[in-house]
Write a protein that binds this DNA or RNA. Structure first.
Length: 648
RNA sequence: GCUGGCGUAGCUCAGUCGGUAGAGCAUCGGUUUUGUAAACCGAGGGUCGGGGGUUCGAAUCCCUUCGCCAGCUCCA
């Protein structure tokens, strides 16, 4: 039995130290500077407190503010700091839990009277004070029963729940203490509150206890913290930047769409300018349908309720429907999905294997009841149009069909200006038969064909077990927008359910009747949602081909209007959307206005231009204007539109 | 749906202690005819989200309802 242990450091060196040495001791022995900047440590890959005595040989790494992993510890400690400050100010508060999150941290509190925004300021001030006091995050181990008793005595029912949930009866439990605040917590934490340099409380929100809406709601306080004031400011700025891209704000400023209180929430009015963008999106999609061998169909918006009993949707999604209506002694409903309609078209005639694959596509508008609190601009609505298609094919055809769908999806995203994606394969949970229909063979076949497609296309993907639709596995493609946010839009899904429920058939080569496989896919996802993402991605500065107004003509004085009209008609003849602004306003004011409308090209014309058949081009985002022959500009913009160029 | 916040002119917002509503931009009329991001003068515009209540009197206080925002829950 040796009293010393060996610690291997990241530079490869090995230190022999007495048992019980802490990571902080090691840091001190390396340099006082390191000891000062150390925040936590990693021992054999596990995050630990700097002050934790080391008992055995291990690989040790001291974490400072250069390690992203230290930030998680830092934020977790920030959450404890928040809780400590709340207890100082509001001692009667009961505590839930307070983890680090992707962008900060939160802590859940239970309290009779909810926190107000003024409370938030007070709490933040108190946190500042506790940082000044440089309180240690002290860890101790107590007997489970003792710990339970202590929390029970304080009425901390949530802490008791966590102890009972996460520890076994004979275990010692880990407690962290910061000032008056005691937490059942496995850590690790910073050595003391003084290490926290930059934090801000952001907002207060409700959150269900244990995430279950049947439980009472807690008060959740959100905050964030960073290693430096500068990082914090950068983050707060980036929130401000994201706000400027908000499609609801831009939709108003650029007059793209609206939602009308009188008409109802979650229902979109496409204004003329948004309508042009929608037309471009739809034209693109319909052209692609035709090019890729899809057939375009249209199905009714209101259909007999019986259809949805047959499809099974009545049972599974009744809570997501708009209520049905009665007409002539029958019940009808607005469609919440397009699949049953397409199936009726498929079934209307007997199909031969020679007819397959049948690909039926529709820009189909559906209505779904979303709970009142979940609507969000264009991204979560009650009425929307899916670029929906259903493919019916033989087992031999399935892989190619899926591969084509995935490539189609990538082409959509690319043409609309997205070049980064993440792909996910959602599979079933064989243990959860209640949530998934179909046999094990069906699931295995379907999942392996999806996998094989992704492999053949050389697409990296994440598998997410248990996330499949109840009727089959699916491939989801998430796009990454201009500021790095992820959006779920495209989906390619297997469906075992509907072919069975509707007894779909085709006649095989040998004359027997077989059931076709069915693929359900939507690439924009919903036209509304895709539009919302486009607005945010481009911050309203659309590529020329999508811009509602592509060129604004600005005659300098009234006498130049005629020439402006002449240029405009040349542009219109070339298929360009051009607006001539002949208002009695200063040129400067017109430039300002149209620049704020993010119009790609402003053409100023005066005496110089009209005499030489030229235009003065002011390009969005560019400081300098340039003189150009009219014909030259027409060719330039034609080319940009044709190429769907994202740059001007 | 839940917790909290918020609804004032077309838009962005001010409005003190409860005393009958105001600015800028936009709109309309006029003047001006302009060289690269806001010309000047004038006018009109409000059941203060809706309904009810308290009060001599309500944008302001209370109740209720609709909508919006943040988050939770949900998202086939």
């Amino acid at each position: 039995m040796s009293d010393s242990i060996h610690l291997k450091l990241p530079d490869g060196s090995v230190k022999e130290v007495p048992k019980g040495t802490t990571a902080l001791d090691v840091a001190k022995s390396i340099s006082p500077r390191l000891a000062d900047s150390a925040l936590a440590a990693k021992s054999n890959g596990d995050l630990i407190d700097l002050g934790r005595p080391l008992e055995e040989d291990s690989e040790l790494r001291i974490l400072t503010d250069r390690d992203p992993q230290a930030l998680e510890v830092y934020r977790h400690s920030s959450a404890h700091l928040l809780a400590a400050a709340v207890l100082e100010l509001f001692p009667e508060t009961k505590l839930g839990h307070g983890p680090a999150t992707e962008n900060g941290f939160f802590y859940d509190f239970h309290r009779q009277t909810p926190f107000t925004p003024e409370d938030l300021e007070k709490i933040e001030k108190k946190m500042q004070e506790l940082v000044q006091h440089n309180l240690p995050y002290a860890r101790e181990f107590v007997d489970r029963s003792e710990g339970l008793q202590r929390f029970k005595g304080e009425g901390d029912f949530m802490k008791c729940h966590f102890i009972e949930q996460f520890t076994k009866p004979d275990e010692k439990i880990s407690i962290y203490k910061t000032g008056k605040f005691l937490d059942f917590c496995r850590g690790p934490h910073l050595p003391s509150t003084g290490k926290i340099k930059a934090f801000k409380l952001l907002n207060i929100a409700g959150a269900y206890w244990l995430g279950d809406e049947k439980n009472p709601q807690l008060q959740r306080i959100y905050g964030t913290s960073f290693f430096s004031k500068k990082d914090l400011d950068d983050y707060l700025n980036s929130i401000e930047e994201a706000k400027k891209r908000d499609h609801r704000v831009l939709g108003k400023q650029l007059d793209l769409f609206s939602i009308q209180e009188l008409a109802g929430p979650g229902l979109i009015f496409w204004h003329p300018k948004g309508g042009i963008i929608r037309k471009e999106m739809e034209d693109w999609m319909r052209d692609q349908y035709v090019k890729r061998g899809y057939s375009l169909v249209y199905t009714p918006h209101v259909m007999r309720r019986q259809l949805f009993f047959t499809s099974g949707h009545e049972g599974y999604y009744a809570q997501n429907f708009f209520d049905f209506m009665e007409l002539d002694d029958a019940e009808y409903r607005v469609k919440p999905m397009n699949c049953p309609g397409h199936i009726l078209i498929y079934k209307d005639s007997l199909k031969s294997y020679r007819d397959l694959p049948v690909r039926l596509g529709e820009l189909g508008t559906v209505y779904r009841y979303e709970r009142s609190g979940v609507m969000h601009g264009l991204l979560r609505v009650r009425g929307f149009t899916q670029d929906d298609a259903h493919i019916f094919c033989t087992p031999e055809q399935i892989e190619k069909e899926i591969a084509d769908c995935v490539e189609f999806a990538r082409d959509v995203l690319k043409d609309f200006g997205f070049d980064k994606f993440q792909t996910e394969l959602s599979t079933w949970d064989p243990g959860d038969r209640k949530s998934f229909v179909g046999s094990e063979e069906q699931w295995n076949m379907a999942t392996s064909s999806l996998e094989s497609v992704l492999r053949k296309l050389n697409i990296e993907y994440k598998t997410i077990p248990g996330e499949a639709a109840f009727y089959g596995p699916k491939i989801d493609i998430k796009l990454v927008d201009a500021i790095g946010r992820l959006w779920q839009l495209s989906t390619v899904q297997f469906d075992f359910n509907l072919p069975q429920r509707f007894s779909l058939e085709y006649v095989a080569e040998d004359g027997s009747r077989k059931q076709p496989l069915m693929v359900h896919r939507a690439l924009f996802g919903s036209v509304e949602r895709f539009f919302g993402v486009l607005i945010e991605h481009y911050a309203g500065a659309f590529p020329v081909w999508l811009s509602p107004v592509q060129v604004a003509m600005i005659p300098i004085a009234e006498r130049h209007s005629e020439y402006a009209e002449k240029v405009a008609s040349q542009l219109r003849a070339a298929g360009v959307r051009v607006h001539v602004d002949s208002r009695n306003e200063k040129m400067n004011s017109k430039i300002r206005e149209h620049a704020m409308q993010k119009i790609p090209f402003l053409l100023v014309v005066g005496d110089k231009e009209s005499e030489a058949d030229k235009v003065n081009v002011r390009t969005r985002g560019k400081e300098k204007t340039e003189d150009m022959g009219t014909a030259e500009f027409v060719e330039k913009i034609k080319k940009l539109i044709e190429e769907k160029s994202a740059v001007l």
